[in-house]
């Protein structure tokens, strides 16, 4: 089970990099970055997983719990990724207001 999720995360990374290189639409780039983010979070949470362990909320002494530290780190990472997504989209909208396009190809010829 762990192996299958690891392989899935690697395929998601490949997908995200393919999208980042081939697309020139800003919103599509942000979509690819979101997919990359989720792949990294899957690997981080997988680090703390143990077979036959339960969620890290302490109820009794003789139960085995999964490691809670990767959960705390990925919790902050999720909220920060929402902020950075909003910031990137805000810049995209701003560029559209100023230049009338969201394609990076047409932004190359920047005058002045």
């Amino acid at each position: 089970m762990t192996q299958s999720i690891l392989i899935g995360a690697i395929i998601l990374t490949v997908c995200a990099f393919y999208g980042l290189i081939t697309h020139r639409h800003m919103i599509r780039l942000v979509i690819s970055l979101n997919i990359l983010d989720s792949a990294v979070l899957l690997v981080i949470v997988l680090l703390g997983y143990r077979e036959d362990a339960v969620a890290p909320i302490v109820r009794a002494a003789d139960v085995e719990y999964v490691l809670g530290l990767p959960h705390a780190l990925s919790l902050t990472a999720i909220v920060i990724s929402a902020c950075t997504t909003a910031l990137m989209l805000g810049y995209a909208v701003r560029v559209y207001r100023l230049r009338g396009t969201v394609y990076l190809d047409q932004l190359r010829r920047w005058r002045g």
Binding site: I57, V58, R59, Y65, G68, H71, A72, L75, T76
Partner: peptide, 8 residues
């Protein structure tokens, strides 16, 4: 009781 909240 929640380990994640305690760490955070």
């Amino acid at each position: 009781v929640n380990v994640v909240t305690a760490i955070l």
